[in-house]
Design a protein around this nucleic acid. Sequence first.
DNA 1: CCGCTGTCTGCAATCCGATTACGACTGTTC
DNA 2: GAACAGTCGTAATCGGATTGCAGACAGCGG
Lengths: 145, 145
Amino acid sequence: MANLGERKEELKRALREGGLRATTSRALVLACLQDAEGPLAHGDVCERLESHGYDRATIYRNLVDLTNAGLAHRSDFGDHLWRFEIAGSEAHDPTAHPHFVCQECGDVSCLPDDAIAVKAKRGAPKSLAQKKVEIQVRGLCNACD
Amino acid sequence: MANLGERKEELKRALREGGLRATTSRALVLACLQDAEGPLAHGDVCERLESHGYDRATIYRNLVDLTNAGLAHRSDFGDHLWRFEIAGSEAHDPTAHPHFVCQECGDVSCLPDDAIAVKAKRGAPKSLAQKKVEIQVRGLCNACD
DNA sequence: CCGCTGTCTGCAATCCGATTACGACTGTTC
DNA sequence: GAACAGTCGTAATCGGATTGCAGACAGCGG
């Protein structure tokens, strides 16, 4: 991780640009999502920030705030847990590419954006034709197959 | 709906073939799923069977039993509710066709099986190549768009 | 048709993540 | 640095999922 002090400023700038107050806890939550290799559940974030002593509710609200500000994205991958993922980066935009979810281990990975082709037919929802949709593919990953 | 008495026998046979006792409530739950035009949440089933007076817990357990017996399929469509769908029939097999989920109203509908084309590339999970996957498309339905 | 045994049901409690009310506190602004 | 609005910690609440328990049936042998 780069210089912490410097990064902190960068994080806080990002928060303010999203219209949020730059509090320490929010910066930490944001950093946590940035450093994650995939979507994190509320509990995962709490665990990673445990040493900082923030309350679960605070972290939860921070996650929701980040989501509303467009800095993060919230989705459900079938196990009844909300997962949060950093937004803005092409690598993680859920509408840019489909996600593959393992039904056995719950692991979420990204598929190349051309792995799935959409053919909207008449009668299909408009959002589908506009490709403004999030696609999830569920099956068994190679490790669990 | 066909002759009820006759159908009841058919339902009970299906239950017994799945290794379950043929109770009235189970037959009703099974019939409910068969008649549904899409996946139903636990609450939906309760609502539809309300006039029969069965307890929510009973219906819930029946749904789980049917799922374990392979007569139904359980999935999550992103709103933190389990939904159950009749299994076995081509028309309702979730791996046979993709589902469209409205992120606004939560409504779930079925898409034609050729609406989505899968191109498994190297490195993709094997289950994807074998098309043993369940595909969910999330966006806004025409009513909410 | 009768009774037995293992299931199933109804009722109500419990669990657990998500969400929020509220009073104390802090980041921002002027 | 004082006022104000947004935040935080605490603890409660909500709602769907899940389960323990005691009485009520289905399936089976007699």
